[in-house]
Amino acid sequence: MNLSVITESVFTLFFIILVGVYGNRKKIITAQINKGLIDILIQIALPFMIFASFLFTYDESIKTNVIKTLYYSIAAYIIMVAASHLLLLPIKNDKKIILHFANVFVNTGYVGFPILNSIYGSEGIVYGSIFNMFFVILVWTYGIILYKGDFNKKELGLEIRKILLNPSIIAVCLGLMIMISGIQLPGVILSSVRNIGSITGTLSMLIIGTILSEVKIKNYVKDWTIYYGIVTKLIIIPMIIYFFSILIDESSKSINTVIIMAAMPASAMTSILAEQYNKEKDYAAVIVSVTTLLSLVTVTLFLKVIL
């Protein structure tokens, strides 16, 4: 893998983030417009990108790696949850909830998929989609429990329904069906699906730029937990998972994809749920914004280690 290509891809994304910042400062991308962009990304562009990633010729090694990615993703989430609990013992109150959620739930959609696409192309998106499937399942169960405390029976049923109807989960299921059955779609459909999915990266970075421009980071400059949380999220936990891959003596696109995803910044859901449940919402916005900004550097360095 040409590392200069990776660096160029990451900083291209960074440039688009700056355009998002400019758009917000000039009131071109307002809060209402940004909400609409997020809906387009989550409900349309990202599912199309995921589905499109399954629409190419597979060999047996790729199908084997899909199965491996299932196991590696489960192991990664177990490691992230356990490591985060131990590392965050010094943190108290709601800040601990924010940081733990941020450690476990990474930004697969806005940042992870565009970077995977630039490194491994469609094959990387396939493996990333498997990792993202567990993200969707866990964020609406374990993630909600972290913020809310628990579920009653009725709420649990509603959340399970949300998971099953999530566009990204549906896209993965349809993609797997296409992959297993070997169905060939007409060229016009292939082209349409890929064109819609191709806007994911640009749209994601514009959204992040808009979010970044709204956060008053200077109010948290003296808060040591911010710095501790950033180091934990972007360096320590990804390195633990990387050392796990060394321990099992595995080096493949499937496990590298899981490691790369684990190195992504905090998910935007960290901030969204913090606001919904009124738990340190400004603090959560800072964690999401700063980890996103710094990840453009840490992920680039991390890729040089694992690739």
Rank of each mutant, 00 (worst) to 15 (best):
I6D: 12
L13D: 04
F15R: 05
I17F: 04
G20F: 04
V21W: 06
G23R: 10
Q32H: 12
I33N: 10
F48L: 13
A52T: 03
E60H: 13
S61I: 14
K63G: 07
I67Y: 02
I67M: 12
A76Y: 08
V81Q: 02
H85P: 00
L87K: 11
K92W: 02
K95P: 06
K96T: 07
I98E: 00
L99W: 05
V106F: 14
T108E: 13
N117F: 13
S118K: 01
S129T: 04
N132M: 11
V136P: 00
V139R: 04
T141W: 04
G149Y: 07
F151Q: 07
I160G: 00
K162A: 01
I163E: 06
S168T: 05
I169K: 01
C173S: 10
L174A: 09
G175V: 02
L176N: 05
V193D: 01
G197V: 03
S198P: 12
S198I: 07
I211Y: 12
N219C: 06
W224G: 14
T225W: 10
T225Q: 15
P238L: 05
M239C: 12
S251C: 03
S252T: 12
K253G: 11
K253V: 09
I255C: 06
V258A: 12
I259V: 11
I260E: 12
M264E: 07
A266R: 09
I272S: 08
E280Y: 09
V286E: 03
S289V: 01
V297T: 05
V299W: 00
L307E: 13
